[in-house]
């Protein structure tokens, strides 16, 4: 699937890479259930600003988070290229609004540099590792850390 995967003899992880503003992130493909185009969300009252609202996912009321705001970056400005990644953590389903999904990368643990000391304080708490891919620098995010505060323990 990816050139960089060929010479690796160890376990491979498949990750979905996506963009928020000019930064690249990725999450483990196993936690992503589907990717769907942007639809406007119904705002929820009295929720943190990064909770964009809820959308109808084939009959399920799906909360959607603006991952830009969640990471302490700027809010996503919806465009036709914006997507909602539907992730499942524990028994909870929720959507992550990002600017665009770029590709799927396959890496081994060796490719990943853990405990990175980059990016701002806010997003650092979500980033579990960094990897360099060609000219790209991709931060790996643990999906479970993205849940809104106070809901994480319920997952």
């Amino acid at each position: 699937m990816n050139d960089h995967a060929q010479n690796d003899s160890h376990f491979k992880r498949e990750l979905i890479a996506f963009r928020i503003a000019d930064q690249e992130f990725c999450v483990d493909i196993k936690s992503v259930r589907e990717i769907r185009g942007y639809v406007p969300a119904t705002p929820l009252p009295k929720t943190p600003s990064y909770v964009a609202g809820v959308i109808n996912l084939r009959g399920t009321v799906l909360p959607v988070m603006d991952l830009g705001l969640r990471m302490g970056l700027k809010a996503i400005t919806p465009t036709p290229r914006s997507v909602i990644m539907v992730v499942k953590i524990g028994s909870q389903l929720f959507g992550l609004l990002v600017d665009a999904v770029s590709d799927i990368v396959s890496v081994t643990e060796e490719d990943i540099q853990v405990n990175p000391d980059v990016t701002n304080d806010r997003s650092r708490s979500f980033v579990s590792g960094l990897m360099a891919l060609d000219q790209r620098m991709i931060a790996i995010i643990e999906a479970s850390s993205i849940l809104p505060e106070g809901l994480a323990e319920a997952a």
Binding site: L44, P45, K46, G59, V61, P63, Q92, F94, L151
Partner: peptide
């Protein structure tokens, strides 16, 4: 539709 299933209780 339950909101609590995927999110939680919201006042009001």
């Amino acid at each position: 539709k339950s909101l609590e299933a995927n999110y939680g209780r919201i006042e009001g």
